[in-house]
Design a protein around this nucleic acid. Sequence first.
DNA 1: AAATAGTTAATAATGATTCTAAATTGTATG
DNA 2: CATACAATTTAGAATCATTATTAACTATTT
Lengths: 138, 138
Amino acid sequence: MPSSIEYIEKLRKSNLRPTKQRIKICEVLFNADKTFHFTISDLAKMIEVNANQKISLATVYNTIHAFEKKGYLKEIAINSSQTYFDTNTSNHHHFFDEKEKELIDLENDGLDPINIKKNIPGKIIKSVEVLVKVDVDK
Amino acid sequence: MPSSIEYIEKLRKSNLRPTKQRIKICEVLFNADKTFHFTISDLAKMIEVNANQKISLATVYNTIHAFEKKGYLKEIAINSSQTYFDTNTSNHHHFFDEKEKELIDLENDGLDPINIKKNIPGKIIKSVEVLVKVDVDK
DNA sequence: AAATAGTTAATAATGATTCTAAATTGTATG
DNA sequence: CATACAATTTAGAATCATTATTAACTATTT
Ligand SMILES: [Mn+2]
Ligand SMILES: [Mn+2]
Ligand SMILES: [Zn+2]
Ligand SMILES: [Zn+2]
């Protein structure tokens, strides 16, 4: 569990000023035992519970997008009314539980290697994401 | 290129009343030589160009969702401000051109078979979608 | 300590999608 | 065909996640 000082260094190295708000968001996101998936409103709730300070929703959005650009977070492609983010930035895939509206990691050892044979002239591959939608077995 | 009468039958078989609007939307979607990907606003423009009638946006939404439920269309998972649909309902995957905001089919023969080895207890797999994001090679 | 650029926060704006309720239409029935 | 009724369409309002605006605040540099 990194200390506040480590987040300050991390932020400075990324040319992001270490503000109270950004440090708090780092704590909420990166002090967890395990990586996790969240929406902005999930995160806002987590901050409320965890914090003695209030962070404006605009700041939460700005910070999350700044972190995403710096590679601290990944955005996950699903069709949902809300955007999902992931503190697990390793190369991996996802299950999406349609019932719980919840993402579950599908690590690379959970599926055969993905090998894209087709290519698009003049274009390079930026990412390959597998989304496995699941629902209750009934 | 199916005739209007065939769409009427198709709609009736699906318990959808064959209205002028639904038939027109069938024509725009299913008379094309090739399958294609579209957003609701794409489709609304196509109808405007193609049609001698105006279809309310609410009706376009209703119809597309009705068609999707009946399996005439697929919805595609990407992070975008707009939802994408596909008239190609076969099992296949996609490239997403970040620059053009355009989907390109990646048929099953364009990649090695996807084999999900992990499973989620109590849940069954509803779909497996691969999304390959591409951008200009520069 | 002052200057400066970066950041926050309240609030407004945006825009895709869904909702509402009244008018219209397709279909079944006599 | 005429009538009845449920399904559908429509314009417009509402919703809601996200982004924009901009004045106040703050971290950093000088
Ligand atoms: Mn983003
Ligand atoms: Mn849908
Ligand atoms: Zn993940
Ligand atoms: Zn497709």
